Computed example of a mutant assay.
Amino acid sequence: MVIVLALPAIFAVAAIHRFLQLYAPTNLLVRQVRAQEPRCSVAAVLSGLATTLLVMMHLLGEAVANGGPGWLNLAVLMLALGGHQGCRAGVDRHGAGHRRGCALRDDPRVASAAGVFIGSAV
Results as ranks from 00 to 15, higher is better:
residue 51 T to F: 11
residue 46 L to V: 05
residue 44 A to G: 02
residue 41 S to L: 09
residue 47 S to Q: 11
residue 51 T to W: 02
residue 69 P to I: 03
residue 49 L to F: 10
residue 54 L to Y: 03
residue 92 D to T: 04
residue 73 N to R: 08
residue 25 P to R: 09
residue 49 L to E: 07
residue 24 A to Q: 07
residue 24 A to M: 10
residue 56 M to P: 01
residue 73 N to K: 08
residue 84 H to I: 11
residue 35 A to H: 07
residue 92 D to S: 03
residue 97 G to V: 06
residue 36 Q to F: 06
residue 42 V to L: 14
residue 30 V to M: 02
residue 45 V to I: 11
residue 48 G to M: 06
residue 82 G to V: 00
residue 85 Q to M: 13
residue 93 R to K: 05
residue 95 G to Y: 02
residue 64 V to P: 00
residue 32 Q to F: 05
residue 79 L to W: 02
residue 48 G to E: 12
residue 57 M to K: 11
residue 92 D to K: 05
residue 46 L to F: 04
residue 25 P to F: 10
residue 52 T to A: 14
residue 47 S to A: 14
residue 92 D to Q: 13
residue 92 D to I: 01
residue 29 L to Y: 02
residue 72 L to M: 15
residue 40 C to Y: 12
residue 55 V to D: 07
residue 73 N to I: 08
residue 48 G to R: 10
residue 79 L to C: 09
residue 92 D to N: 08
residue 80 A to L: 14
residue 43 A to L: 02
residue 81 L to N: 10
residue 26 T to L: 04
residue 45 V to R: 09
residue 52 T to Y: 01
residue 68 G to V: 02
residue 83 G to E: 02
residue 27 N to D: 06
residue 85 Q to P: 00
residue 74 L to K: 06
residue 23 Y to H: 12
residue 35 A to E: 13
residue 54 L to V: 03
residue 32 Q to W: 03
residue 27 N to G: 04
residue 44 A to W: 09
residue 50 A to T: 05
residue 90 G to P: 02
residue 32 Q to E: 13
residue 65 A to E: 09
residue 76 V to Y: 00
residue 97 G to Q: 06
residue 60 L to A: 12
residue 74 L to W: 08
residue 58 H to N: 10
residue 59 L to R: 04
residue 49 L to Q: 11
residue 59 L to P: 01
residue 87 C to T: 08
residue 86 G to P: 00
residue 84 H to M: 12
residue 26 T to I: 13
residue 79 L to Q: 06
residue 39 R to F: 07
residue 93 R to D: 09
residue 85 Q to S: 12
residue 92 D to M: 00
residue 34 R to W: 04
residue 56 M to T: 08
residue 95 G to C: 05
residue 24 A to H: 15
residue 77 L to D: 13
residue 57 M to W: 05
residue 57 M to T: 08
residue 82 G to D: 15
residue 87 C to N: 14
residue 42 V to D: 14
residue 88 R to E: 12
residue 53 L to I: 04
residue 90 G to K: 04
residue 93 R to A: 08
residue 40 C to V: 12
residue 51 T to A: 13
residue 81 L to V: 13
residue 49 L to T: 10
residue 23 Y to L: 11
residue 75 A to S: 13
residue 87 C to D: 06
residue 55 V to C: 04
residue 94 H to G: 02
residue 92 D to E: 15
residue 32 Q to V: 02
residue 37 E to W: 01
residue 74 L to H: 07
residue 73 N to C: 03
residue 33 V to W: 00
residue 98 H to E: 14
residue 75 A to D: 03
residue 23 Y to I: 07
residue 33 V to A: 10
residue 74 L to F: 11
residue 70 G to H: 08
residue 42 V to Q: 10
residue 88 R to H: 12
residue 74 L to D: 09
residue 58 H to Y: 12
residue 81 L to S: 06
residue 36 Q to R: 14
residue 77 L to G: 12
residue 47 S to C: 06
residue 65 A to P: 01
residue 82 G to M: 04
residue 41 S to K: 09
residue 45 V to M: 10
residue 26 T to D: 13
residue 64 V to F: 03
residue 91 V to P: 00
